[in-house]
Write a protein that binds this DNA or RNA. Structure first.
Lengths: 353, 353
DNA sequence: GTGAAAGCGCTAACAT
DNA sequence: ATGTTAGCGCTTTCAC
């Protein structure tokens, strides 16, 4: 049992080892210029005294807190939980800790994050904006270590890690059209909301429709207040009540997709026979819905890593003056039974054809 | 636009307002003994200079970091994401920030958390133990601000916020028996794993079976490596291959429940007609599975609040000597269609009877 | 009610 | 390769 873990200071270790504080610090930071025997001596004292660094003191002296903030709408969306998990892993590789901030898609909270919050605390911020306007993002506080996640792409004043929302939406829509769908509705995609991916995903859908010579029909655009499971039911009902109901629904995310599938089931509509359903984000859940949900899968690990790398680059000496970088992470379409009836994944699927 | 947000120190504010640093600090902390006009003056300076407190310095001087750690297996389980969300809310009410630590159910990581980690950083720790043994928990480092979440209940040396796992399992099992089920299997419940709730949940099941005069059949205990959706399939297959397959499956959590439902569907087994399924945790997803999943719902908000309250009590002067407190949060059974076929929730459900 | 001075525990020049 | 000296920006006795 190493040490009784009281308040052991670095200077105590130095005294115990018979060296100066600087030497202890050198050992702690793996500085090269420490003789092997000194190092051993210090490490022994470190262990017997049970020294644990005081991060507040280190942060104050070094002007580096070792924290980065990750601001996301909320952990209750598995997509963001997943993202947070990846960011924490990527950050840990550089000895950074992650402070998760839930913005709840509130403009005020997002604004607070962008402007650095009320306190001086983090070395950098990763923000997934949702409610705040692009204009405000590019305007304010472009000087601080801020990486934006998202698909807007218009912000030239800070680092940006994005996905190609238009291409992804085009791909999933094209897949739907390939399956013979011509009346493709959407749930949760709101082209007027400019902070999140809505507009771009809608654009991708329109491009695919255009390319196939199909009309873009505005009555197929079902809005929801929040893009979550419970909200999907009313939107599905709305679409089913249309004179000519859709034969496919592209959902803003898998949460909405899951809710839509549930409602279609309640209404006795066969998926995909009568209506195909697809989503975005490829939540793990989507491999287990009835039927499994076709979805766009983002490279979340790459996304997280790039965000952290950008912050790292900027926090190095001289990094603050680096020009803003924009990088795009990859995606792929995970095709499942919600859009292709006869996908023969195994012997059982064939029975249901 | 208040201040150009450079490095404004408290002493700068003091100089600008023509007062001492102590007075500025008093204003910041809402100390009563500040005259109204002084306060106004200081607040004006605070605003025009755009002062933001340096939390590292505050932490160093005050010996309080303002952080608590929440150590959970991982955010990818929606149950823990939800818990984290509640803890963050409860902590925010006391101006605490939450540092989320993913233990991945690793003994070493849990041990590191219990022993305070390598660094002096947080004011307290909330740990949901999973892999570490009870013995180790009560042994080591009982002196630090540690609140244990969980159902073990045996640890007398630190604060403990638990659920009544036995009662909850008894309730859901009794419900299953009421529905006429006599062959109740379980997936993911591993009585030999003593850190998580397995043993207690199994005990509750046994109690309910005993009370109904039904036999406890060990072949109905299907283990899994990890209690997650993908692992459920093999367990379901195992149970279906039994000479006398079960007519109900009680899953360790809703993740397993979701995976079990998916596999039963693939195998063409009707739920609940042939096999009823129930879970624990009441994930939001479980209201949208096919069919919706009966589950035990814990009072997560209450759980989070109590954990934070306990930490708060201990971090107050003299709080360290408080005797360990054990408190139990409530639960209720959310009954859904996976266990009762004819539950007439709406007009459509009746058709499927 | 407000001010002056002494640290909190660490890092970072600079010196040796 | 190791020691010396100043702070980092805040809180906190203790005077006044």
């Amino acid at each position: 049992m190493p040490g009784s873990s009281g308040r052991v200071r670095l200077s105590d270790v130095a005294a115990h080892a018979g060296v100066s504080a600087k030497t202890v610090s050198n050992v702690l930071h793996n500085h090269p210029h420490v003789s092997a025997e000194t190092r051993a001596k210090v490490e022994a004292s470190l262990a017997t005294l049970g020294y644990r660094v005081n991060l507040s003191a280190r942060a104050l002296a070094s002007r580096q807190t070792g924290f980065i903030a990750l601001a996301i709408p909320g952990l209750d969306n598995p997509y963001y939980a997943q993202l947070a998990s990846h960011v924490m892993d990527a950050a840990a590789e550089h000895d950074w800790m992650v402070l998760i901030e839930q913005t709840r898609s509130s403009v005020d909270l997002e604004r607070a994050v962008v402007s650095g919050g009320g306190a001086r605390l983090v070395d950098g911020v990763i923000l997934q904006p949702d409610a705040i306007s692009q204009a405000e993002l590019s305007d304010r506080f472009a000087h601080q270590n801020l990486v934006l996640i998202g698909e807007g792409g218009a912000t030239a004043s800070s680092d940006h890690v994005t996905t190609d929302a238009v291409a992804a939406a085009r791909a999933v829509a094209a897949h739907l059209i390939e399956q013979g769908r011509t009346r493709i509705a959407t749930i949760g995609i709101q082209p007027q909301m400019r902070a999140n991916a809505s507009e771009l995903r809608y654009r991708g859908l329109c491009q695919a429709l255009d390319a196939a010579g199909l009309p873009v029909r505005s009555e197929y655009l079902a809005p929801v207040d929040r893009t979550r499971r419970p909200e999907a039911a009313a939107a599905v009902d709305h679409l089913l009540a249309l004179p000519e109901p859709p034969d496919a629904i592209l959902c803003f995310n898998d949460l909405v997709g899951s809710g839509a599938l549930a409602r279609l089931r309640e209404r006795g509509i066969a998926v995909p026979t009568e209506i195909a359903v697809a989503g975005f984000d490829d939540n793990e859940e989507s491999r287990f819905t009835a039927p499994p949900l076709t979805s766009v899968s983002w490279d979340l690990e790459g996304l997280a890593r790039r965000c952290v790398d950008r912050l790292l680059a900027r926090s190095r000496p001289g990094g603050a003056d680096l020009p803003p970088v924009r990088s795009v992470v990859s995606h792929r379409l995970a095709v499942r039974e919600s859009t292709v009836g006869q996908l023969a994944v195994d012997e059982d699927a064939a029975l249901q054809a």
